[in-house]
């Protein structure tokens, strides 16, 4: 099977010019490959470098060295992220690579349903189709219908997280990158979201997931590959049992 993600020798060092040019090594010489249709869960302590890796894969961070090659689906072309222009990177993100950040930026004064619908339109859906899909996703994520016309700034953290998840899924991306998508959810809702993500994979005909998770139960259900990152280095990569043995 072909690879969705190929990462080789990837490093990220932040140079903090405002604190005397201090260099902060956030990710060191990381290499791995992930097949199409796989679900990778990244685990590790806070500050280990998990979000750095995810942001590099999303193109939100620029790599200090190494390469990231992405082929969102077997039918799409392979692209090296560093070689993409800003415009092409934005198009790739809109079209086929979804990214759900850990911290959510709420759009002011726009009703929740319109936030999700607009994201669908950006990804190329017709307005009616985008709205129907947005309603379906918000229903599935158990956002009450009476909240649809309200502004997301009035939502609880859990509701905002689900809204953000709806925005990521409405695009139907072939590759979905998620940074702690269930951190603000109760165990029952967490199960619901895991189920949705599995359904998303089958709906996209083998969509690829990369998810940062701290919840072992959710990780076991979602992952067919696990990566452990510690102190900016990849410590283990493989199936759940292989990683358990290695660590």
């Amino acid at each position: 099977m072909s690879n969705c993600i190929e990462v080789s020798g990837l490093s990220k060092t932040f140079t903090l010019h405002l604190v005397g040019g201090t260099r902060l090594n956030a990710l060191h010489e990381t290499s791995f490959a992930l097949e199409h249709g796989a679900s990778l869960v990244i685990m590790g302590k806070t500050g280990a470098g998990k979000s750095t890796l995810l942001k590099l894969l999303a193109g939100a961070y620029r790599a200090s060295s190494g390469a990231i090659v992405i082929q969102p689906s077997p039918e799409s072309s392979r692209v090296e992220l560093a070689s993409l222009s800003d415009v092409d990177l934005i198009a790739l993100r809109r079209r086929s690579v979804g990214y759900l950040p850990q911290h959510i930026h709420v759009v002011p004064r726009v009703p929740a349903i319109d936030v999700v619908t607009a994201t669908g339109i950006e990804a190329g859906l017709e307005e009616a189709e985008a709205r129907a899909r947005a309603e379906e996703l918000l229903d599935e994520l158990e956002i009450k219908r009476k909240l649809f016309p309200l502004f997301p700034s009035t939502f609880s953290p859990g509701e905002r997280q689900r809204l953000n998840l709806a925005c990521a899924l409405v695009r139907n991306p072939s590759l979905l990158l998620m940074d702690e998508p269930v951190s603000a959810l109760d165990p029952r809702m967490m199960q619901q979201v895991v189920g949705m993500l599995q359904r998303h994979r089958s709906r996209t005909g083998g969509g690829t997931l990369v998810t940062i998770l701290h919840q072992m139960a959710a990780a076991e259900q979602l992952a067919d590959r696990v990566m452990v990152i510690d102190d900016a280095r990849m410590k283990a990569f493989g199936t759940f049992s292989e990683v358990l043995q290695a660590t």
Partner: peptide, 22 residues
């Protein structure tokens, strides 16, 4: 410096960009 808005906010490279964003 130029880039996507996400890159400039999340990962500003130039000292001046870092000063502006921070």
């Amino acid at each position: 410096e130029r880039g996507t808005v996400e890159q400039l906010i999340e990962d500003p490279q130039a000292p001046y960009s870092q000063l502006l964003i921070h």
